[in-house]
């Protein structure tokens, strides 16, 4: 092995970063709602790729593989945040009876994201939320979503149906068709 290559990234990795980083980061932004978390999540995805690349058999596309890593990372992050948030609430309230049930990072989302329908999507269960992101933000087919989520196509359809039904119930009718008005860089609302 060439020693000069030992501490340099493999060629395939540079190609994958170049080809897919932007798309993964975009999906991460729709999932998280703020740029800082989206950057972290996208970087985390590619760092995990370095560890898991040997398991990539090539049967699926690189994008599908990366989406799967991204969603796993996001799921773990949600669990970790919920645990920390629950502990903090218990400590703050003295007991766990009055724990607040809002998302842990709700206060640092960008205003545009919060005001958009994707802010409401964030209130859905993680499995439904991920299916919605893959379908409507990333425009994947049902089969591709099933491959990413490692579940049957019927499950994907069911999750999407449940998610859209929940969204219709939660949103007022005029909110559904309202476009995002501001085309500015999202600001952090603390």
């Amino acid at each position: 092995m060439d020693p000069s290559r030992e501490n340099s990234p493999p060629e395939w990795f540079e190609q994958w970063v170049h080809a897919h980083y932007e798309r993964i980061r975009r999906a991460a932004f729709v999932l998280c709602g703020n740029s800082a978390d989206a950057d972290d999540l996208a970087q985390d995805t590619f760092l995990r790729l370095l560890s898991t690349r040997s398991r990539f058999s090539g049967k699926s596309s690189p994008e599908t593989w990366l989406y799967a890593i991204l969603l796993n990372a996001h799921r773990q992050r949600c669990r970790s945040n919920q645990r920390l948030w629950r502990r903090w609430c218990e400590w703050w309230n003295g007991d766990g009876s009055k724990a607040v049930s809002i998302a842990p990072d709700a206060e640092i989302h960008s205003r545009e994201w919060t005001e958009s329908i994707w802010g409401a999507v964030a209130q859905l269960p993680v499995a439904q939320r991920q299916a919605i992101v893959l379908r409507y933000a990333e425009q994947l087919s049902y089969e591709e979503i099933a491959e990413v989520l490692e579940c049957p196509v019927g499950t994907v359809r069911s999750r999407l149906h449940a998610a859209t039904a929940a969204l219709r119930e939660r949103l007022p009718p005029d909110a559904v068709l309202r476009p995002v008005e501001k085309e500015t860089i999202p600001c952090l609302v603390r």
């Binding site: 989206a38 545009e112 329908i117 994707w118 919605i132 425009q139 476009p179 995002v180 860089i185 999202p186």
Partner: peptide, 13 residues
């Protein structure tokens, strides 16, 4: 609306 707003967010992000 989901598709449009996702595109819009991707542009503004």
């Amino acid at each position: 609306c989901l598709v449009d707003q996702a595109d819009q967010l991707a542009k503004t992000a």
